[in-house]
């Protein structure tokens, strides 16, 4: 029987600007089962990335989580004191959240080109997270670990001694995945992980991510706006519009019989390869 890795209940997040309060996330609820890939799709400003940031405990001023719960269940092998526990991320201390990130919930950021440090070698950046989480390794163990991680994302071990500018966009995105899985998290959040890559590389990167997810028996929360990519990637999908979840369901149902008019328009808005439509 599968268990809920993540349960979000009636989450509300506001941004406070000098003139008004923006309800970025306006009471949304959903859950993600173990081993499941769940997608959150919507246009920019719909609040999808804000939800992802809240799960990582990264909502900062002028944003504020107003109410709701984010329950996370860490499976076996989680870092103490969070192993085998069900916690409300909202009630954790900053230190507890820091320990949870990467080890329990990890992020594959949007545009890895901007998330890697340009003046540090890949090896050092891969070790950062491990060091930060108090994992002590000997020099030899470090080499082994890095080799293993790079291999798992289809990169040669020489990549470890390169700088980010020496890598292509697809390779950088693979490095970002290698870092995200380095502590074997139970939930991987992928925020538009391939939006800057061309289609062939995109497919290679997504295939790599899903293969690793299976191996780690982790769940994936995929955030994005590309309905085509969602259709090919996730099991269940939530459609967000103006801070609300307008539709949630199995991906085959949503694409087969979209209920909400916004979902219908989102699917129809994809540029077609069979029919030219007038844009002007």
């Amino acid at each position: 029987m599968s268990i809920s890795i993540l349960e979000v209940n009636d989450l509300k997040i506001n941004y406070y600007t000098p003139n008004r309060v923006i309800k970025a996330v306006d009471g949304i609820s959903f859950d993600i089962q173990s081993g499941e890939r769940f997608g959150l799709v919507g246009e920019s400003g719909s609040g999808k990335s804000t939800v992802a940031m809240a799960i990582l405990g990264l909502i900062k001023q002028p944003g504020r989580v107003e109410s709701g719960e984010i329950w996370f269940t860490n499976g076996n092998g989680g870092e103490e004191p969070l192993a085998n526990t069900r916690v409300n991320i909202r009630s954790l201390s900053l230190e507890q959240i820091r320990r949870l990130r990467l080890a329990g919930v990890a992020l594959v950021p949007q545009g890895a080109m901007n998330s890697l440090n340009p003046v540090k070698k890949i090896r050092a950046q891969m070790l950062d997270g491990m060091v930060d989480h108090g994992i002590l390794l000997s020099g030899h163990e470090k080499d082994e670990r890095i080799k293993e991680l790079l291999e798992s994302v289809g990169l040669r071990q020489e990549v470890a001694n390169m700088y980010p500018h020496e890598l292509s966009g697809g390779m950088k995105q693979r490095v970002a995945i290698a870092i995200a899985i380095s502590l074997r998290p139970k939930l991987i959040i992928a925020d538009e992980p391939t939006s800057a890559l061309d289609v062939i590389v995109q497919r290679q990167v997504m295939e790599t991510l899903f293969e690793l997810q299976d191996r780690l028996q982790a769940s994936v929360l995929m955030v994005g706006h590309d309905m085509g990519l969602m259709a090919q990637s996730v099991h269940r999908l939530g459609v967000m519009y103006a801070g609300k979840l307008v539709e949630v369901g199995e991906v085959t149902d949503i694409f087969g019989h979209p209920q909400d008019s916004y979902t219908q328009r989102l699917i129809a808005s994809l540029p077609s390869l069979t029919r030219k439509s007038s844009l002007v």
Partner: peptide, 25 residues
Amino acid sequence: LLIDSIPKPNPSQKWGGGATLSRTS
């Protein structure tokens, strides 16, 4: 290959026509 690699908004239509990709170009 380019056209098959476009993710289609139809979950029952396999990405890439089910063909596998070589990892590295």
